[in-house]
Nucleic acid binder design. Structure first.
Length: 204
DNA sequence: CAAATGATGACCT
DNA sequence: GGTCATCATTTGG
């Protein structure tokens, strides 16, 4: 493969931002500390989970392409947004077209647009504004309409940030077919990591 | 068309 | 620790 020839990736890595044209397991820890920006807010990503497509029974792509998971089978650098129990959850699609692999963004710290986020999450403490995958989407105003959005586009942008000083990992949350995989990664120092098996305890 | 299924979150004891 | 409201999507009849 000649170095200059990278076809159909849809994603060009910039300094401090991971190259998404590889497996979710590699990308996931590198996304911690990166910034996800929407038109009126931005969060520093502090908790993620890797989902490894066809090889991972817990992945929505395990049973092949459907209308819902189509974005995961496309090029890297696009948002896969899906609906669960009445909430929206957000993934970053990884790997080359045809191979599904994605990183679920589970929590972030709001670093910009605090007023806009507070308006969407009334009565919630600042540390908890974007804690949990559903809450993260709500905080940023991301809905199913953003499924397929370009991570280098106007609706959402992935930018460099400050990596965690301490990185922790453990089993994924609410995944029955975990198979011993410890594919959840979080910033051990962040107060915005979701409650389940948080280390050792986050403070509001 | 009907039913089952969650990568959830809020609230309760 | 536990219950349950909620809804897009998938799957089966």
């Amino acid at each position: 493969m000649s170095p200059g020839l990278r076809v159909g990736t849809g994603w060009d890595a910039r300094p401090g931002v991971p190259d998404l044209n590889r497996s979710a397991l590699e990308v996931a820890p590198l996304l911690l500390g990166c910034v996800l920006r929407t038109p009126d807010a931005a969060v520093r990503i502090v908790e993620v989970e890797a989902y490894d497509g066809a090889l991972d029974p817990a992945s929505h792509a395990f049973r092949g392409p459907t209308r819902r998971n189509a974005v995961m089978f496309g090029p890297p650098g696009f948002l896969y947004v899906y609906s669960l129990h009445g909430h929206s959850c957000l993934n970053v699609a990884c790997r080359e077209p045809g191979v599904a692999s994605a990183v679920l963004l589970r929590a972030g710290e709001v670093i910009e647009g605090l007023d806009a986020v507070r308006a969407r999450r009334p009565g919630v403490s600042d540390a908890a504004l974007a804690r949990g995958p559903g809450n993260l989407c709500r905080a940023l105003g991301i809905t199913l309409a953003d499924n397929g959005a370009d991570l280098a586009g106007p609706r959402a942008r992935l930018e460099a940030g400050s990596p965690p000083l301490a990185l922790a990992s453990g089993p994924r949350v609410n995944v029955s077919s975990a198979g011993g995989r410890e594919w959840r990664f979080w910033d051990a120092d962040s107060a915005s990591v979701s409650a389940f098996k948080r280390h050792p305890r986050a403070v509001d």
